[in-house]
Design a protein around this nucleic acid. Sequence first.
DNA 1: CGCCGAGTTGAACTGAATCAAGAAACGTGG
DNA 2: CCACGTTTCTTGATTCAGTTCAACTCGGCG
Lengths: 188, 188
Amino acid sequence: MENIKNHLSNIVDISENDWEIFSSKLSKVNFPKKGILLEKGKIEKYLSFIESGILRFNIPKIEYDFTFAFAFENNFVSGYDSFIKQKPSLYNIETITDCTLWRVSYDDLQNIYATTTIGNRVGRMIAEELYLKKMKRELCLLENSAKQRYLDLFEEQPQLVQNIPLKYLASYIGIRPQSLSRIRKQIY
Amino acid sequence: MENIKNHLSNIVDISENDWEIFSSKLSKVNFPKKGILLEKGKIEKYLSFIESGILRFNIPKIEYDFTFAFAFENNFVSGYDSFIKQKPSLYNIETITDCTLWRVSYDDLQNIYATTTIGNRVGRMIAEELYLKKMKRELCLLENSAKQRYLDLFEEQPQLVQNIPLKYLASYIGIRPQSLSRIRKQIY
DNA sequence: CGCCGAGTTGAACTGAATCAAGAAACGTGG
DNA sequence: CCACGTTTCTTGATTCAGTTCAACTCGGCG
């Protein structure tokens, strides 16, 4: 829980009082490996902070299971578009490893938004943070080759990439598992 | 200015009073075609709403000028990452056509954030909106072929795409101008 | 032990990049 | 308002990265 505070403090000053209000609504949850946090078609009820573990965002397609994002320790995770609009999610979120999360429900968060200033600040900061991440990714997808994207990911999350099956990584990078296998071979 | 209110009303209820506070800080600016809103290396001072016109986000590279995003009428535009962190921007924002904008300065916005609830709500909503757009784009870049991305863009912004030079579009779609030229040929 | 999903490897194919040259459109100054 | 230079667009030939289809290996698990 201390990690969440640190994480938020990096972006904005939070008074003890504000932190009390926010943190009182957080509850701890454990998910086993391959657990489903959010199912396609369902509405996201939570905004979660990852204490430990790795998750993936995926679209279960007819042809193949398509992974387009990951979430790691000490970050927020949510089917944020579904969460914001409270409409059915277009994708699943599932755990790749065992996970421990701290989460706040939509209703509680709306309550915090409505009754406190810090709520909206925190909400804004989280949205901004997620935006920056997507922005970075957009540039990465446009500018870099598949090989470079793999190397980048590896550099950012070295120890974690080891734990993710190749096929998920391939899909995230935007190529086929066969191609990533060849790229790996070419690197080592 | 009424457009901004409508735009925001679509996402959240704003009281007349809140609107007064927010709108009092907005000022109108005109930019000619090829005008520079934000220069790489400078810090973004404004969050702007586009009353009319089209803009592009670009990175001036050694090899070639790289356009990675556009902004259209009735949307917010800002070097948002630079704006949020008040750090030098990694890219330019320039106008493709003549533009009329309504903008609020960083300081005024921080002031609104600090003194009102609606400020943070609006800020949160804008960040969320930008995030949703990037999210959509991420999926588009990963799932679709260059041809499909072009058709998508064309469908979304038909009359506007006409006004954008091919080379900017190509770069946005993630291919070379030559390739887009061939794709166009293939379509018509 | 045998199965199954994950990863590797090969060969043929395809979409897009690159290099290069010419045509069209555009802007500026005379 | 035309002439010129510059930028943008088109088209061709070649190369390359990544796809597809297919066969095979490896490791884990019932």
